[in-house]
């Protein structure tokens, strides 16, 4: 049960942290169509958060709710990968991150549709529809911005170079992953690495961007051992009402 809880937190926290970062774009995107698309992505991700964290809370069995998990845990209890918590910086980094994550989510959720846990399979099926749509859009945007102008190409390359060392954590493996695999609940993330590599290489090359050579990867998010400094600030904002007015119902 501990491993299932851990696994569900990773699912939920990835969605929550990326959803929150995406929601920071509200009203200030480069064009009205992007405002709408970003709000829509954030909305999907917050919806997914409710599913995964709701189930996590149930599995934990301590009477906590999805909201308790989202709003009353501190940094070291979060299980999202580091790439999703770093600041948006500019629209280029925001969309590049979205693409690197979507390219993982599609094969990952596809595999989870065959989970031995019925709810994991159901939630994955529902999230997969959204992930497919997100991937189409983020890949298309990366290609457009990679090829657009000299400035946009430079910015997209910088975004990729910055994010690249964080992408490897998508494929982390520990006791939890192994326990999930043994129970038929999930596959090992490493098993979809080829799919991800192929998709990412293909799109980056269509976008006239150079895939960084380094294979170095920062870890610490999905284990919770060592997050970036950015997560605490994000939580300070996100959790302020629940922290300031304990027990209030909103």
């Amino acid at each position: 049960m501990k491993h299932l809880f851990e696994f569900l937190l990773r699912q939920g926290d990835n969605a929550l942290v990326l959803g929150h970062r995406t929601s920071e774009w509200c009203g200030v995107a480069p064009a009205l169509e992007e405002d709408i698309a970003l709000a829509n992505t954030a909305l999907d991700l917050i919806g997914q958060t409710q599913l995964w964290l709701g189930y996590a809370a149930e599995v934990e069995g301590k009477g906590r709710s999805a909201n308790d998990l989202a709003y009353l845990r501190d940094v070291y209890d979060f299980r999202n990968i580091l790439m999703l918590e770093v600041p948006n910086e500019d629209f280029g980094r925001t969309l590049m991150r979205q693409f690197l994550f979507d390219a993982f989510q599609v094969p990952w959720l596809t595999a989870l549709c065959g989970s031995s846990d019925k709810r994991v399979a159901d939630f994955s099926g529902k999230s997969l529809k959204e992930a497919n749509y997100h991937l189409d859009r983020s890949a298309e945007t990366v290609i457009a911005l990679g090829n657009g102008t000299e400035e946009s190409n430079t910015r997209m390359q910088a975004a990729l170079d910055y994010l690249w060392p964080y992408a490897g954590e998508l494929f982390g493996e520990d006791d939890t992953d192994q326990a999930m695999q043994a129970a038929g609940i999930a596959v090992l993330p490493a098993s979809i690495r080829n799919d991800w590599d192929t998709k990412v290489q293909g799109i980056l090359s269509d976008a006239s961007l150079r895939t960084p050579k380094s294979t170095f990867a920062h870890f610490g998010g999905r284990s919770g051992f060592r997050h970036t400094e950015h997560l605490g600030h994000m939580l300070a904002t996100m959790q302020i009402l629940q922290r300031s007015y304990p027990g209030a119902v909103w």
Partner: peptide, 23 residues
């Protein structure tokens, strides 16, 4: 207030609203 909405439901509702306004 989207980044400070007090619950996941409220955050989702507010996001949906602001998305409508952009529409």
């Amino acid at each position: 207030w989207i980044t400070r909405a007090p619950t996941l439901e409220r955050k989702a509702n507010l996001l949906a609203k602001v998305q409508d306004e952009a529409g």
